[in-house]
Amino acid sequence: MEVRTIKVFTTVDNINLHTQVVDMSMTYGQQFGPTYLDGADVTKIKPHNSHEGKTFYVLPNDDTLRVEAFEYYHTTDPSFLGRYMSALNHTKKWKYPQVNGLTSIKWADNNCYLATALLTLQQIELKFNPPALQDAYYRARAGEAANFCALILAYCNKTVGELGDVRETMSYLFQHANLDSCKRVLNVVCKTCGQQQTTLKGVEAVMYMGTLSYEQFKKGVQIPCTCGKQATKYLVQQESPFVMMSAPPAQYELKHGTFTCASEYTGNYQCGHYKHITSKETLYCIDGALLTKSSEYKGPITDVFYKENSYTTTIK
């Protein structure tokens, strides 16, 4: 009895394709271990004539594949690729409408935090270190965002349907971005203890939790000093293409032309909904596939993004 075979390709990165001759009487799992086709788990399936010449994702289970996976995804987590594939199996079914010149995501599976993050990423200057993220990001900007969303979920250790947080998501993504040249110098002034300067680099240099107003941050924000008295913390120097200011959701007025974009969060910790506000020729609110415009805006804002380049204080 002759062994019926077909020729397929296996890959971990969709760049390096490895030619395989597979036995049609055995499952993919018996031949390769966990195997995925377009995100779908085909591990328990036997090869079919229609699979001839198709590319299958496999887990990096030998040295060659491990090197290829690390170079593309910059992670050695053995569960990463499987999590990416199972997320992709959902995100490829989502709709990605162009809204006001940006790629958004039609609401499904509690994905409003991903839509808000995706919209924000198209408006701030950011370059990702893992080629996987950078490639998928370019495709997302062009309207094909399924891979990018699935990668975000995998890097953030999230599953489809789980509630997510924009600030946490951005923080994970910033860790995989090139923020080497970003720098922030802060000064804390206390009447009792004097003053202390701190220099922050990388992710810490672009994120701040405690106030939404970048102007206020430049002037000074009140913080408790270690001595128990009130101290003032203010920005001395900022070198970065953008800054992200966050605070627990509270009524906040966004003035046209003073910011790049913002995240609105309605609801409580267990259950809520994100919308995205962007400042173009007027203010726009993007909620999944829905767009509304207004000249002014007041609502429960939790993150505001500002364009920056270089700032030095005039406070002496």
Score class of each variant (00 low, 15 high):
residue 40 A to C: 10
residue 145 A to G: 07
residue 198 T to Q: 14
residue 99 V to M: 10
residue 264 E to V: 15
residue 275 K to W: 02
residue 25 S to H: 14
residue 232 T to M: 11
residue 265 Y to M: 15
residue 29 G to E: 11
residue 259 F to N: 05
residue 51 H to P: 00
residue 202 G to Y: 01
residue 158 K to C: 01
residue 59 L to M: 13
residue 288 G to K: 00
residue 142 A to F: 13
residue 277 I to P: 07
residue 14 N to P: 07
residue 204 E to F: 01
residue 84 Y to V: 04
residue 283 L to N: 04
residue 26 M to P: 04
residue 77 D to M: 03
residue 198 T to N: 09
residue 111 N to E: 03
residue 80 F to C: 00
residue 156 C to D: 01
residue 308 E to W: 08
residue 91 T to W: 04
residue 214 Y to M: 09
residue 142 A to H: 15
residue 239 E to W: 05
residue 233 K to Q: 08
residue 169 T to E: 00
residue 78 P to D: 12
residue 107 W to T: 15
residue 154 A to M: 02
residue 229 K to N: 11
residue 204 E to Y: 05
residue 295 S to V: 11
residue 118 L to H: 00
residue 233 K to I: 15
residue 208 Y to D: 11
residue 72 Y to H: 15
residue 138 Y to K: 13
residue 92 K to M: 12
residue 11 T to Y: 02
residue 154 A to K: 01
residue 196 Q to Y: 10
residue 312 T to Q: 13
residue 218 K to Q: 06
residue 77 D to F: 01
residue 222 Q to T: 12
residue 230 Q to H: 12
residue 135 D to H: 14
residue 155 Y to L: 01
residue 177 A to M: 06
residue 185 V to A: 04
residue 12 V to C: 10
residue 78 P to S: 13
residue 251 Q to C: 09
residue 133 L to R: 00
residue 241 P to N: 07
residue 41 D to P: 10
residue 147 N to G: 13
residue 78 P to N: 15
residue 185 V to E: 03
residue 102 L to K: 05
residue 79 S to G: 14
residue 261 C to K: 06
residue 45 I to D: 13
residue 293 K to Q: 09
residue 68 E to Y: 05
residue 115 A to T: 07
residue 199 T to I: 12
residue 295 S to K: 11
residue 188 V to S: 06
residue 305 F to E: 03
residue 79 S to Y: 07
residue 60 P to N: 15
residue 253 E to K: 11
residue 98 Q to P: 00
residue 209 M to E: 13
residue 26 M to C: 14
residue 14 N to C: 09
residue 137 Y to M: 14
residue 157 N to I: 01
residue 250 A to S: 15
residue 225 C to I: 00
residue 243 V to M: 07
residue 144 E to P: 02
residue 300 P to S: 13
residue 144 E to N: 14
residue 307 K to Q: 09
residue 15 I to C: 12
residue 152 I to E: 00
residue 164 G to M: 07
residue 216 Q to S: 10
residue 140 A to G: 01
residue 253 E to N: 14
residue 27 T to K: 10
residue 292 T to A: 09
residue 160 V to T: 04
residue 146 A to F: 02
residue 186 L to I: 15
residue 305 F to G: 05
residue 173 L to E: 01
residue 13 D to G: 02
residue 39 G to C: 08
residue 151 L to H: 05
residue 44 K to M: 09
residue 170 M to I: 06
residue 248 P to F: 07
residue 177 A to F: 04
residue 128 F to C: 00
residue 56 F to G: 00
residue 24 M to N: 11
residue 192 T to F: 12
residue 249 P to T: 09
residue 123 Q to K: 02
residue 40 A to S: 11
residue 20 Q to M: 09
residue 232 T to A: 04
residue 143 G to S: 02
residue 22 V to T: 11
residue 8 V to R: 01
residue 46 K to W: 15
residue 124 I to F: 09
residue 128 F to N: 01
residue 195 Q to R: 13
residue 37 L to E: 14
residue 102 L to S: 07
residue 100 N to K: 11
residue 275 K to I: 03
residue 273 H to Y: 06
residue 184 R to D: 03
residue 218 K to H: 06
residue 104 S to W: 00
residue 141 R to A: 08
residue 136 A to S: 09
residue 6 I to G: 04
residue 122 Q to L: 02
residue 153 L to E: 00
residue 242 F to E: 15
residue 229 K to G: 13
residue 230 Q to N: 08
residue 158 K to E: 00
residue 296 E to W: 12
residue 30 Q to R: 15
residue 255 K to G: 04
residue 16 N to W: 06
residue 208 Y to S: 09
residue 279 S to N: 08
residue 241 P to K: 12
residue 205 A to L: 03
residue 293 K to P: 11
residue 82 G to I: 12
residue 74 H to M: 04
residue 111 N to Q: 01
residue 279 S to Q: 07
residue 257 G to D: 07
residue 156 C to V: 05
residue 238 Q to L: 02
residue 266 T to R: 15
residue 16 N to G: 05
residue 276 H to K: 07
residue 125 E to P: 05
residue 163 L to I: 09
residue 81 L to K: 07
residue 3 V to H: 13
residue 170 M to G: 02
residue 206 V to Q: 06
residue 120 T to K: 10
residue 92 K to C: 02
residue 52 E to R: 11
residue 181 S to C: 13
residue 284 Y to M: 10
residue 122 Q to K: 02
residue 45 I to S: 10
residue 53 G to N: 13
residue 195 Q to E: 15
residue 96 Y to N: 00
residue 50 S to I: 12
residue 154 A to W: 03
residue 171 S to W: 13
residue 92 K to D: 01
residue 185 V to T: 10
residue 15 I to W: 08
residue 20 Q to A: 12
residue 122 Q to G: 02
residue 112 C to F: 05
residue 120 T to V: 06
residue 257 G to N: 12
residue 247 A to K: 02
residue 139 R to G: 07
residue 138 Y to Q: 14
residue 45 I to L: 13
residue 43 T to L: 03
residue 246 S to N: 06
residue 140 A to D: 01
residue 250 A to T: 13
residue 273 H to E: 04
residue 160 V to M: 04
residue 185 V to D: 04
residue 216 Q to T: 10
residue 303 D to V: 09
residue 281 E to Q: 05
residue 11 T to D: 02
residue 267 G to R: 15
residue 295 S to E: 10
residue 256 H to Y: 02
residue 290 L to T: 11
residue 261 C to I: 05
residue 203 V to L: 15
residue 134 Q to E: 14
residue 241 P to A: 09
residue 184 R to S: 13
residue 207 M to Y: 03
residue 259 F to R: 06
residue 112 C to R: 09
residue 196 Q to N: 10
residue 180 D to T: 09
residue 217 F to S: 05
residue 49 N to H: 14
residue 314 T to Y: 15
residue 273 H to T: 06
residue 194 G to V: 03
residue 80 F to M: 02
residue 12 V to Q: 11
residue 129 N to L: 08
residue 99 V to N: 02
residue 56 F to D: 00
residue 109 D to F: 02
residue 279 S to I: 02
residue 140 A to M: 11
residue 291 L to D: 07
residue 229 K to E: 14
residue 103 T to W: 13
residue 33 G to E: 00
residue 48 H to W: 15
residue 46 K to T: 15
residue 143 G to M: 03
residue 136 A to K: 01
residue 185 V to P: 03
residue 3 V to W: 11
residue 82 G to K: 15
residue 68 E to K: 15
residue 309 N to I: 10
residue 287 D to E: 10
residue 2 E to H: 09
residue 107 W to N: 14
residue 114 L to V: 07
residue 223 I to A: 14
residue 75 T to I: 14
residue 200 L to I: 11
residue 95 K to F: 13
residue 113 Y to P: 02
residue 233 K to C: 11
residue 66 R to V: 07
residue 100 N to E: 14
residue 99 V to F: 12
residue 153 L to T: 03
residue 184 R to A: 15
residue 173 L to R: 02
residue 232 T to V: 13
residue 48 H to N: 15
residue 245 M to T: 06
residue 218 K to L: 05
residue 166 V to P: 04
residue 96 Y to R: 00
residue 78 P to I: 11
residue 156 C to F: 01
residue 311 Y to L: 07
residue 165 D to K: 07
residue 99 V to Y: 07
residue 74 H to Q: 08
residue 293 K to F: 05
residue 279 S to C: 08
residue 139 R to Y: 09
residue 112 C to G: 15
residue 170 M to D: 00
residue 286 I to C: 04
residue 53 G to V: 04
residue 238 Q to C: 02
residue 71 E to W: 04
residue 48 H to V: 10
